[in-house]
Write a protein that binds this DNA or RNA. Sequence first.
DNA 1: AAGTGACTCAACCGCGACGAC
DNA 2: GGTCGTCGCGGTTGAGTCACT
Length: 305
Amino acid sequence: MSSATTQASFCPINLIAHVGEHFMGRHSCCYKQKLRKGLWSPDEDEKLFNHITKHGHGCWSSVPKFAGLQRCGKSCRLRWINYLRPDLKRGMFSEEEEGLIIELHAALGNRWSQIASRLPGRTDNEIKNFWNSCIKKKLKQNGIDPDTHKPPKEDNPHKDEPVAPSIIENSDLSNSGTSESQSLSQSLPLRFEQSDMALNVIPEFSTGYNNDNTLTSIMNLPQDASFQPFQYLEGGIDVNPSSSSGSSGNSSSAMQLQSYFPWSELLPDGGAEIHIGDEPEDLKWSEYLNGTIRCMYGMHKDSSI
DNA sequence: AAGTGACTCAACCGCGACGAC
DNA sequence: GGTCGTCGCGGTTGAGTCACT
């Protein structure tokens, strides 16, 4: 069920029938003031929307009073943020958004508000629901623990390796959005190998945000002569096997990578840095991201997230 | 048509952080 | 330093919907 189909009770343009009289119990504060709780009626939505678009929300606790609502400020704030805000994006999550959510969750954990801040038009609540209802399931189906972003411990060939130094504690991404000028120094050791995979050499990725708020993934290419970047970055790219088969070492792989991703940069150590956000618009984002995710998670080529 | 279980998602709840006094 | 009010966050709940029998 898409959010679009269920959010029909009100939209600023369209008032659609909605059954409104719900009193499901009250906050203590709401009880004291005999405030309403539960689902919002179209009338309430309209009052709140009109008030905030005219006057802004200011102090949330005073909003219900000035908007003529029998609600607590907290409830008004939630309704505005999750439903009435005009900049909200509606409908299903795109593949690109889904991939980004997974990547950000790997870095940030359940910090939904920070994840939401990287997805314009999406709310933390929406992303949290999407994660819990869809992505978790898909990752499990692909043999990935959604909490650790790794295969379950018993199947993890790297289980004896030190656990990724807490991505959350160490990553710049974990800093609350106060400073977007994070460097790219923190690594996300999402690297593992599965013998039954078509892809048997998994490059290691690091991600972070640049000063300009673009997301960058650094792919540390393996020191392996057999590495062919397009085993990983597949999708929408015409891979010429003869050109990649001659690759010897990560340096040439990186060069190949850059020849297909001209906005990427070669790094001094032979790796390549991909700037997500700098790519030409005509690139199929989903295809690129799919490749990235498969890469990060070491999925079988044919598996889908 | 009715019953049931799975699923989705809007909204609630409780808590911590923060600032003002 | 203590108290209070406000805000924002993450976890949880439960009504509504759908699919299946």
